[in-house]
Design a protein around this nucleic acid. Structure first.
Lengths: 188, 188
DNA sequence: TTGTCCTATATTATCGATAATTATTCTGCG
DNA sequence: CGCAGAATAATTATCGATAATATAGGACAA
């Protein structure tokens, strides 16, 4: 499929995209307020699309919102992160368990190939100390596992939890690679 | 906590509540379209709150929405339901596993009491052939398990999956009680 | 000084109207 | 009769303005 797609995106989606970019790249920091009219003026739209975009980010877990007060970039506390990790773990363990039952070498081959690729990327990312790249590859690794369960609902649940980890990527410590390599073993 | 709470709900929330009621009680059937202006006129509001309510129901999984076309009550197909059940299972199994590690008889006592209560309610519901009551008690049973994990994120994920099961409640067959009684055993 | 009420201000929530987009119907042609 | 294409209708998406609400700060009394 070619890349050209006539690019007719709704304003809401454009605003959403911009706000997400700002959050993950750190232009908007946790705790920063997001004012509907201010953003609207800045982007040259009216309040409505911005409002919808904000609501969307809220359900995606990027921001907190208090009625009649406003929205702010979410402050991730340790507990919430741990909780998200736990749920992710639950989902992934389940996905792997389901895979092992039906595990022909052939059927799993593409998955394993993808996992190897992710591990490679992670290795180079670690070597270059590129945290952004590392978390990216890490996400791909885990997502591939969930994807291979063939359960779309599971994937979307997993995605909704990925967010927080992505935003907080900068804070991730380096002990990661060992742990993920450990997780490569079960499926093999 | 007393019940009085000044009751100042936003229009969006009221609209949302009304639409959900209509969906679960069957006034709105799967496949029915929900037109923003029509609902707005009917409820005496403007388009904006209805629009937000619809978006909310969309993320809750009650309805499907196509840009520039409209929204309709979701048609649950077998696959999606099975997927939701699988994820629920994954989460619940994980929650139970976590509980068993730290299982003093005392700490678990209130949970077990609640589970017993749910089972009782289910039994009477079955006796009276009240499907609505049965699914209610069933939901409470499972939710209690997840709640006791102390993981709020897990609870909200679980809640987001409950919806579909609730709506489809009418179609649930009777083999249920045996299965849930089976599930009572592990925690004990 | 401290606590309470009131006012000013900032921001969201809602409104009514218009623009943009998609679906549908109609029409003329082959 | 069937089909492409234009006109029409239905509906969402966006706009600009107003109403409702919450927060902060100040005046005032005890």
């Amino acid at each position: 499929m070619a890349t050209t797609k006539v690019v007719r995106k709704s304003l809401k989606d454009q605003v959403k995209k911009i706000l997400i970019e700002r959050i993950v790249e750190g232009t908007l920091l946790p705790g920063d307020r997001i004012k509907e009219l201010q953003v609207a003026k800045e982007l040259g739209t009216s309040q409505a699309p911005v409002r919808e975009a904000i609501r969307c980010l809220e359900t995606l877990g990027y921001i907190d919102h208090i009625p009649h007060v406003g929205a702010m970039v979410k402050n991730f506390n340790r507990r919430e992160l741990e909780e998200a990790y736990q749920v992710r773990e639950a989902v992934e363990v389940f996905a792997v368990a389901g895979l092992e039952e039906t595990c022909d070498r052939e059927a799993c081959a593409p998955l394993l190939a993808e996992l190897e690729r992710c591990l490679d990327d992670m290795k180079t990312a670690v070597a270059q100390r590129e945290i952004q790249l590392l978390t990216n590859a890490d996400n791909r690794f885990h997502r591939a596992i969930v994807e291979f369960s063939g359960n779309a609902t599971m994937v979307s649940v997993w995605d909704s939890l990925k967010i927080q980890v992505q935003v907080v990527g900068t804070l991730v410590e380096a002990a990661m690679p060992l742990q993920t390599i450990y997780e490569l073993h079960p499926p093999i």
